[in-house]
Design a binder for these strands. Structure first.
Lengths: 188, 188
DNA sequence: CGCTGTTCTTGATCTGGATCAAGTGCTTCC
DNA sequence: GGAAGCACTTGATCCAGATCAAGAACAGCG
């Protein structure tokens, strides 16, 4: 619960009474390694803060899985696209390591938006952050070579390379595992 | 001004008094064909609704321009990434045809967020829409072939093909103008 | 008008990364 | 502990799309 409080406080300040509305809406769920947090085709009912573990976001295509990103640390997790639309999702989220996620129900969040004006702002600020993140990723995808993107990943999140299979990293960098393997051999 | 009112009403209802705060913050600007709405490196001060014209969003890379999207009709225009961060932008927005954009200053919008709670919600809802749009584009980029993406573009926005140079469309579809030309000849 | 620069087309090559294939560990779990 | 199944590496081909090149159509403008 402390994590929820600290996370929300990064964006807005709430009164004691407001906290008493907000905090009870959040609760932890365990996702063992390999289990799905969100499955494409299903409507995402909850949205999560990562307490522990790494999750990968991917889409299926021709029987391949293409990885769009990872969640870990105390960042956000879940299929926000489906959560916002409350329509069947197009993404999958899967626990890559044993994970604990602290989630809130869509209905509860909607109610909080009504009850607590500061939460409406919280929602806006998170979305701004998510959007800026996407823009950054889009730029990187275009303006950096595979090798640069690899170096940057090593640089920013070295722990990922230990925790996540190389084929997922390869997919995230938009190349085959073979090409990724050769790149590593070449670059060291 | 009517366009502003109708656009905002798609998201939230305001009282007469609230409108009197909100509407005066918006004002139109003309952008002749070829002029820049936003330039990478500059901080985006305004955000716009398209009253008239088509604009393209692109990044520069190695002297090439890579097109990420178009704004037209009554959609949003401007570099939202820079606008949100109030930091130097990484994108360019340029008028492809003579354009009239109705904009709001960052400072005014921030003030409205304080004064008018419904506007905070408006901000959140727009962001949700933008984020869903990005997710959709990301999926399309991955799961559809160049030809499918072309067909879909023809299908959804045939007018773009008339208004925008083919090299920009090609760039948007992530191919060279030569490849795009051959695709058109083949597909009809 | 006719000149100039740009966009679009078409053809001939080239190449980075994908695909196919085979072999080598590592886990994992009866 | 041994077998099965993954994940990873390394090598040999292959190909979609990029690049290079050159001409045609067209728009803008002095």
């Amino acid at each position: 619960m402390d994590l929820v409080r600290r996370t929300i406080e990064r964006y807005v300040q709430l009164t004691k009474e407001e906290w008493s509305f907000v905090l009870p809406c959040w609760s932890p769920t365990e996702f063992p390694r390999g289990s799905h947090v969100s499955r494409s085709g299903a409507v995402e009912k909850r949205f999560y803060i990562v307490e522990k573990g790494v999750q990968r976001l991917f889409v299926e295509h021709d029987g391949n899985e293409i990885c769009l990103g990872f969640s870990y640390d105390h960042s956000w997790s879940g299929d926000y696209d489906s959560f916002v639309r409350q329509a069947p999702g197009r993404f999958n989220v899967q626990a890559v390591t044993d994970s604990v996620l602290i989630g809130i129900d869509h209905d509860d969040l909607t109610r909080l938006y009504e009850q607590v004006p500061a939460m409406e702002r919280f929602g806006r600020l998170i979305l701004e952050e998510l959007l800026v993140g996407r823009a950054t990723r889009e730029i990187e995808q275009i303006a950096m070579s595979a090798e640069e993107r690899y170096r940057r990943l090593v640089d920013r999140s070295p722990q990922l390379l230990q925790l996540v299979p190389q084929k997922d990293i390869a997919s995230y960098l938009r190349m085959t595992p073979e090409t990724f393997s050769r790149l590593r051999a070449r670059v060291l």
